[in-house]
Nucleic acid binder design. Structure first.
Lengths: 231, 231
DNA sequence: TTCATAGTTCGATGTTAATCGAAGCATTGA
DNA sequence: TCAATGCTTCGATTAACATCGAACTATGAA
């Protein structure tokens, strides 16, 4: 009859087979739609919808609407950690699922989305900016931190002129090949054109592919402390 | 409809409020009886018994019979880890419970149990032997490892004569003040008398208290790499 | 506007499982 | 051997909830 943190409530949420399947599917880090998750769990869309709103209410999922789709992803690292711990208990060795994206390798690696960088490198850049605390999520909005402001201006990007425009500075855009977030908004656009003026990257004329030069790739990796080639 | 590790099954086990309360109570590391756990969860003993056998069947608990009591403790570190992860999700800050033992401080610290060392120092010695891989659990039985054999003979204890006896060398005994395991069996007995011959410790005549000398305490701490005084 | 697609809400149904009383079993102590 | 204590098993009851069909809302496309 004692009260600690309400571990039962959230364990019960994970404890339903349908919900557990959805959560496991989301362990890839990618965002999935209601219908995809329904398929994954082997239930109808109505049922899935009900489950998903419970998971969202319990703080396990983060929903994002994009057009007429609703994408769900795990709410944060803690959720993934707890799931992994449970997987470890259930099976011994933890094993994560993989999920394949679209076809063309070059498109998947780096491409233009509207006017900013998308694809694997886009999401990696986004993750790096988050990890290094240059940008952060505040409620629904994405904001540039003080540290991030410093980082951007040091790059030689004129923030003031960006902020003068009425389009939002930072926007989160869901990458449809990676199903993860990348950076949109005027800052996302400015970063891509920054890469172009430095000759780090070139847009392909006919396709949406973005090609990084050898040097550009190295600089990109140094700047964001990532390892693009080893993925 | 996919199959990964069956995370739902075990999450459902944790997901019942009564069971979650029991598990939380066991996070102290101490073993508790069926009736105590029933009390903890606010349910009748029958219901508790049913829950506990499910938890045991799911591999979350380790039962030990001692007389007409049945003690339960968490099965292993992984279980505790998973519970903690869930607690973190549920509340943000993790917080462990405390549970008080019996009264007399000296008795709680070190005493004789049958003929071996019990109390706080007994369980600490046990934990240290386990952590340093001198003894380990093999199925239901406790065995001395090769490393442990070396350790014991180096102390100057005659293992051969111990093994000649028909009483088991290593036995796990549940400490009723600490509600954790300490080392019994002929080895446990030998260790205590070893401490006595070296004048590290003396048994009190009337009570079951074991008193360590200043030097004995230091040697004990060095030997097992623990810090008894700072608990 | 009209149609199609993606999700949500509502209501009815069926299954699961938590709960406890009562009876049974096992261990301990006298 | 008898009584007391600790726990388990059985059976009946009850409450919760997962599930899906059907109707509804919202977004996008023609």
């Amino acid at each position: 009859m004692k009260e600690g943190p309400d571990i039962a409530r959230i364990a019960a949420l994970i404890g339903d087979p349908a919900r557990a399947n959805m959560l496991t599917a989301l362990m890839s880090g990618k965002a999935l739609t209601v219908s995809e998750l329904a398929e994954e769990a082997g239930i109808t869309i109505q049922t899935a919808s009900s489950h998903l709103s419970k998971l969202e209410g319990g703080g396990l999922l983060r929903p994002r609407k994009q057009g007429r789709h609703k994408y769900f992803s795990l709410a944060n690292e803690d959720v993934a950690h707890a799931l992994e711990a449970l997987m470890g208990l259930a099976a011994g060795a933890g094993h994560l699922r993989k999920r394949t994206g679209p076809k063309d390798a070059a498109l998947r690696k780096a491409r233009v989305c509207y006017n900013h960088l998308a694809g694997d490198m886009g999401t990696q850049m986004f993750d790096a900016l988050m990890a290094q605390n240059h940008i952060k999520l505040q409620g629904e909005d994405l904001i540039l931190t003080d540290k991030g402001t410093h980082f951007i201006t040091t790059l030689g990007i004129d923030l003031d002129s960006l902020q003068a425009k009425k389009t939002p500075l930072c926007r989160e855009c869901l990458d449809w090949s990676e199903r993860r977030s990348h950076l949109a908004g005027s800052l996302g656009r400015a970063l891509l054109s920054h890469f172009e003026t430095l000759n780090w990257a070139k847009r392909d004329q006919n396709t949406r592919v973005v090609r990084f030069s050898r040097e550009g790739l190295q600089e990109f990796e140094r700047l964001f402390e990532v390892d693009v080639r080893r993925r």
